[in-house]
Each structure stands twice: as C-alpha cells, then as structure tokens.
Write a protein that binds this DNA or RNA. Structure first.
Length: 490
RNA sequence: GCCCCCAUCGUCUAGAGGCCUAGGACAUCAGCCUUUCAAGCUGAAGAUCAGGGGUUCGAAUCCCCUUGGGGGCACCA
C-alpha cells in the first residue's frame, strides 16, 4: 500500500476564504486526504487569503468546521498566505534581478479599455505587454508619478509547455496563447499563481490534486517553476462536480455549503462514501465503503475524467443505509439534537432519553436523514393531535361504523391488564372479525386516531410506546370527531 | 473569439481491442412480504457506448473530423 517513490507524499487542500465550501471543494479535500492517508503522507491545510476585497467573514471557520465534521484531519497548518507576504516579495525581487519579471504601471482603466477593444476586434483578451519593453527613462518617468506598479511575468513569446497530468496525461499549451500574468498586485499581495507556486515548493508539496478548472493555468505555473529553478510537483486535475442543471455548483443550487448537509441530517460517513464515488470507483459493484476501505483502495488511477452531476436521491439512499447500520444508541445520540431543534415548541424539553429511545427504534429504518426524524416522530411527543378528521374515514368506512369500531376498541382496551404489542394485537385482531370489518380497515382507522396520519410505524408497537393513557385520550377524541361526522350526515 | 479538457442507461459508474447479446448502484415500474409507511426480496424497463470516418481478422475501448458539454483567457482564487 505504501508508495515506493523517493519523495514523501505531501498534498494540500488550499481553499480561499471567499465563500462557504461546497460539495466540490470538499470532494477535492477528500481526495487529497485519501491520497495522503493511503500513501502514509501528509495532508496540509493552507488558506489562500490573498484577496482582501473578496474575503467573506466566517468562511475560514466554515472550512475548518467542514473538514472536522467529515473527519478530514490535517497534519500541518492551517497556513495563511496573508502572513507570508515577505516571502513572496523576496522571491519576486530575485525574479526581478534575473529579468524574469518586470514592473507594469498600466492603470486598471487602460487594461479595461484594452480588453474591450480586443473583444470588439474578436481577439483573445491578453495584456499587450506595453510595460515589458520600457526604457530606463520611461520607467523613471512613470515611477515619479507615484503609481504603484504590479509585477508581471515575462512569458516566453515562442515555444510551448507540455506537462504530464496524472489523470489527463500529456497536455500542451503554446506560449503565444498566454500573456504576461501578474504575480504581485499593486497592494503588495501575491496573486494565486505566485503564492501557490511558492508555497507548494516551500512546503515540499509532492502532488497537486485540485479541480479541473485549474488545468489551464498549469503552463503558467510550470514556467514559473522553471524561472525559479524549482522542480514542479506532480499534477492531477480532478473532474468537477456539476449541479442538477449541468452548470457549475454555485449558490443557486440551494444547499451548496457542505455544512447545510450537516444541518439536514446527513452522516459524515455517508457523505464521505458518497463524495468518494463522485469521480472515483473501486470496481463495477462496490457502493458501500468505510473510511478505512477508502483509504486502503484509493488511487488516482481509478479517478475518472468526466464531470459528475451530484445526485441527491442517491445520497439520500446511502444516508439511509448508514442510518440503519447504527446501533439504536448511536442513532439516538445522533438524532436527539435534531429532535431538540425541530420538534414543536410545545413539546417539553429536555426530552426523556428512554422514551426517545423507544420512539426512535420505530423509525430508524424509516428515516433517510436525521432531519426527517422530528416530523416522523412528532405525534409521539405531542399532546392533542391536529389532523383532518376525514382521514378517519380514509379506510372507506362509514362514519357510524367507524365510530362504533372506535368505541368497541376502547371498551376492549379498557379491560386489558398488559399494554404490550402482543397483548394489543391479541385483543384488537379478533375485534375486527367480531365487527365484521377487515383488519386492514380497523387498524387503519386506529392508526389515524392514534397518530393523525395514514402512514406510521406498526400500530401495536406505536400504541405500546404511546402508552395507555395517551392512546385512550386520542381514541376518545376520534370518537368525538366521528360523532360530529354522523351528526352532519343525519 | 482564442486556448484547454471531456463524451457509456435520467443520474453515479464498470469497461484499459476479443470475457459485451455492454455489468453494477440510485431513481422508476411490477410482484412478494405486510395492519399503513418503510425496510427487505424478486423481476422489468432503461445506453444503436454523441455522430461520422478510419486502423484492425475483430473496437465502447486506438487515430482523425464533426457535434455537444464544461473550464480558462482579472491587480479572483
């Protein structure tokens, strides 16, 4: 399982705090983490906070929370690029001395105009290199105006750059399709290209696993590595994850922040399993894999090239599978915060753990997310039920007939000593025969009376958990509702 | 507009020239089980492997073109 390569495996997850991490971001983190763990290497966390304007408050914490939630622990970091400005500046100075970069004084307005004109002429938008050939005099002149220059890379005009991507194979870009990109902004902060290359090198990153959208900036990075006389890491560009509309994942897709899934009651284990299968597969049949399985089997060779659409239905199914695999104790543990949060306010807190356990044992195999649990179990906790009385006749019984059945049931139930599922069934099943209605109809009627709905856990177990008192109250209430019906019809 | 990437059931995917009359999973439909709902089991439907040319005795698999989709081309990452 261990890699035999000379250099130790060191990978990083390098998000920017400009938005809340979504499925795609986290899938990238997961693949990096799995790769590191599989090879016994290091997983480094680096926050790329070099854009002061776009920084969004709270996103750094969200990134850490998301990783922690899924158990993607990091071995180093988080490093913050905003704290490493001196490093980028020093390196830029060295590049300047060697003539690999130059100072550019073009004001943003000029660049904008230039790009607009290029668009009109249907030319690719590229910096026209005006400052690349400045004479000493011109430079001094511009310098004296007090303008803060940016630093641009002197991209070779001719030739091409080819690199080998671990997933895509050889990829070639001609240099004349590139322009002189900016390394250092006028505010002294580095751009992604500079900071990324410098840090990956300084942090001895061996493999860069990141989303496909970066593929086209690799030639710039390779050129930079060359200018710095550094050996580039290995690159692997992962397929991106698309929304249901085939567009890139974005805010428009609703629950995009990964923490939303946590709030909706998905388990980290299910999330990890699901995410791992978005772009990676073990074979032609395995769907369910534990974290250990994933670490054991993960390999870049089995990462696909095609963008994947995130399929919520399958996530729901998988989460249900993981929910059912929990012991009852674990399920209770996981579900309680959701009950606390979403059960009606009228339900008294704190919830009785023993009672919650009995309730949850009846819905564990019925829930696909923990978020559904409160709604699934609400009637166990509530006092008087609110429901449409017509549901009582959903079994196609006439109102008088139904009223009679409920009354007979109550009379019978009053007499029994034990209140367990077996006794209840033994009491009520014969009653159906005596009343001359099918068990289905009788049980359906009682189900509505006791739960307020037509779909609920098995009747006798439900009654047992509900307890005799509550059951009798609800039957009484149903009887009243039914008599009101009969009155109407009369 | 230019550059790059990608292309197997609705969706996630298996497939690295003959094992493919293209396999699995989710979703869908039907049956079984059954007091309802789930779960479970069984089965069905669903892909002319984007289209067209090659290469080869043989192509989903290799090459080319077309089409489609995606990404990039910022003092954003």
């Amino acid at each position: 399982m261990k890699s035999v390569s000379e250099t130790p495996v060191r990978v990083r997850f390098a998000p920017s705090p400009t938005g809340y991490p979504h499925l795609g971001n986290i899938r990238t983190a997961l693949f990096n983490w799995l790769f590191a763990r599989h090879h016994g290497g290091k997983f480094i966390l680096r926050i790329e906070d070099t854009d002061r304007a776009r920084k969004v408050e709270g996103t750094e914490e969200a990134i850490l929370d998301s990783l922690r939630w899924l158990g993607l622990d990091w071995d180093e970091g988080p490093y913050f690029q905003s704290q490493r400005l001196a490093i980028y500046r020093d390196i830029t100075r060295g590049l300047l001395e060697k003539g690999h970069v130059y100072l550019c004084y073009c004001p943003p307005q000029r660049l904008e105009t230039m790009r607009r004109e290029q668009a009109e002429r249907r030319e690719p938008p590229k910096y026209d290199r005006q400052c690349r050939h400045l004479t000493e005099q011109e430079r001094a002149q511009l310098e004296s105006t007090g303008a803060n220059p940016v630093v641009r890379f002197r991209t070779p005009v001719e030739g091409e750059t080819t690199f080998n991507d671990l997933i895509h194979g050889a990829v070639t870009f001609k240099h004349d399709t590139l322009d002189d990109f900016i390394l250092l902004k006028s505010d002294g902060y580095p751009t992604y290209h500079l900071a990324n290359v410098v840090d990956d090198h300084l942090m001895a990153v061996s493999h860069v696993l990141r989303a496909d959208e970066w593929l086209s900036s690799v030639p710039r990075h390779v050129l930079l590595y060359g200018a710095l006389n550094w050996t580039p890491p290995q690159f692997a560009h992962l397929p991106i994850i698309l929304g249901p509309d085939r567009a890139r994942l974005s805010k428009r897709h609703g629950a995009t922040a990964i923490t939303e899934y946590q709030k909706q009651g998905y388990l980290p284990s299910a999330m990890v399993n699901f995410l791992a299968l978005l772009g990676w597969s073990l074979d032609d049949r395995t769907e369910l894999l534990s974290i250990d399985d994933l670490i054991k089997h993960f390999s870049l060779q089995r990462v696909g090239k095609t963008a994947a659409i995130f399929n919520r239905d399958k996530l729901d199914w998988m989460n249900g599978v993981y929910l059912r695999q929990l012991t009852l104790d674990e399920f209770v543990q996981q579900a309680i915060p959701f009950l606390d949060r979403d059960l009606p306010e009228s339900v008294e807190r704190p919830l009785d753990r023993g009672f919650v356990g009995s309730v949850l044992s009846l819905v564990q195999e019925r829930a696909r997310t923990l978020g559904e649990v409160p709604e699934l179990t609400r009637f166990f906790f509530e006092g008087e039920l609110q429901y449409d009385p017509r549901l009582l006749l959903a079994g196609k019984l006439e109102a008088p007939e139904a009223a009679e059945a409920v009354a007979a049931g109550m009379a019978r139930l009053l007499q029994i000593q034990m209140w367990d599922a077996e006794t209840l069934e033994g009491t009520l099943r014969p009653l159906a025969t005596e009343l001359g209605i099918s068990t289905g109809k009788l049980f359906g009627l009682l189900r509505v009376a006791l739960t307020g709905r037509t779909a609920a856990p098995p009747l006798f177990q439900t009654m047992m958990v509900l307890g005799k008192e509550k059951c009798m109250q609800r039957l009484e209430r149903a009887a009243q509702l039914l008599s009101a019906f009969s009155g109407l019809e009369a």
